[in-house]
Nucleic acid binder design. Structure first.
Lengths: 159, 159
DNA sequence: TTGCTCCTCACGTCACGTGAGGTGGC
DNA sequence: TTGCTCCTCACGTCACGTGAGGTGGC
């Protein structure tokens, strides 16, 4: 009985494959304290637990939410041995709540963006039977010569 | 009558304020052909149309979807004078459709992520009345000593 | 010993950030 | 003329990408 718990440890290559990333990024994240290997061998080899892939995925999710790595490191800094169990769980709860808030915000922005795209596509269909067309001479149909109104913004962006 | 259409032109500073960005980024986007000023003065000053802010916003939306600037430049390359009106409109339609597809994909991932966060928060509430707690000795509650199951991934990431 | 994987520099790239030093006046 | 804004380099930064040259063997 060398260790009280059995856990399979992966070298960096196997862990990178499991996580869908590469060695450089894992080494960089270790440097930032974002994702530290469970242990190192005497020769310097990094060893990761299989469950560390959960932390990897959370970092990626937070990056997709637009956070910088140093900010992510702050939010995920729940691994401080000086924390009481109560304080640790409060931090975990705060990190999860903040992430949910960011997800909800982004969901709202995406829904609004899809609404704008639909609006642009609808106007584009009208344009197809129009005798005008975007060109430098008519300020690229801005405003539209038919109804005199500004184009839907996402159509204006492409005309 | 100097110009057939009247349009208010903004110097880079005013346009940056309107767009909510800065001079450096606008100059960089011009360099990439992403957002080119409507004209330049003899002294080299850049002038933008107010409606160019629509293009700026579209670029930002696509960046938030995770696209690189060179890929965005490809998708927004609808401004080629050699294109027929029919081909131009087909390209615009394709660009809008692709963007909608990316939005829908991201929406689905966000919904899934919120589901995982809710799952983690639910388990966390159970943890609060548990006599165990995450520590190196129990592999950070992996697996959970109460039900013997792996932790919800987003809780595992923080324990 | 031979492969394969791992290690640590260290320079390159993308998308800007930030001055330095000088010019324009739609 | 004086301010204020604009201009073009050009070096710095963040989050990695990509070798170079050498070592480990959970």
């Amino acid at each position: 009985m060398t260790q009280p718990t059995e856990m399979r440890l992966l070298k960096i290559g196997a862990f990178a494959e499991l996580a869908g990333t590469n060695l450089r990024t894992l080494r960089y994240y270790e440097e930032l304290g974002l994702l530290v290997p469970a242990r190192r061998s005497a020769g310097g080899l990094r060893f990761y637990r299989e469950t560390d892939v959960n932390r990897w995925r959370m970092v990626q999710t937070m990056r997709e939410l637009g956070l910088r790595l140093d900010r992510i490191a702050e939010l995920l800094a729940t691994h401080d041995a000086r924390l009481s169990r109560h304080d640790l769980q409060a931090r975990v709860r705060a990190a999860l709540a903040e992430q949910d808030r960011l997800c909800a915000e982004k969901e709202a922005r995406l829904a609004e963006q899809r609404r704008r795209i639909a609006e642009a596509l609808a106007k584009l269909s009208e344009c197809e039977s129009c005798r005008h067309g975007p060109s430098p001479e008519n300020n690229f149909c801005e405003p539209c010569a038919v109804d005199g109104k500004p184009l839907p913004p996402d159509l204006s962006a492409l005309y």
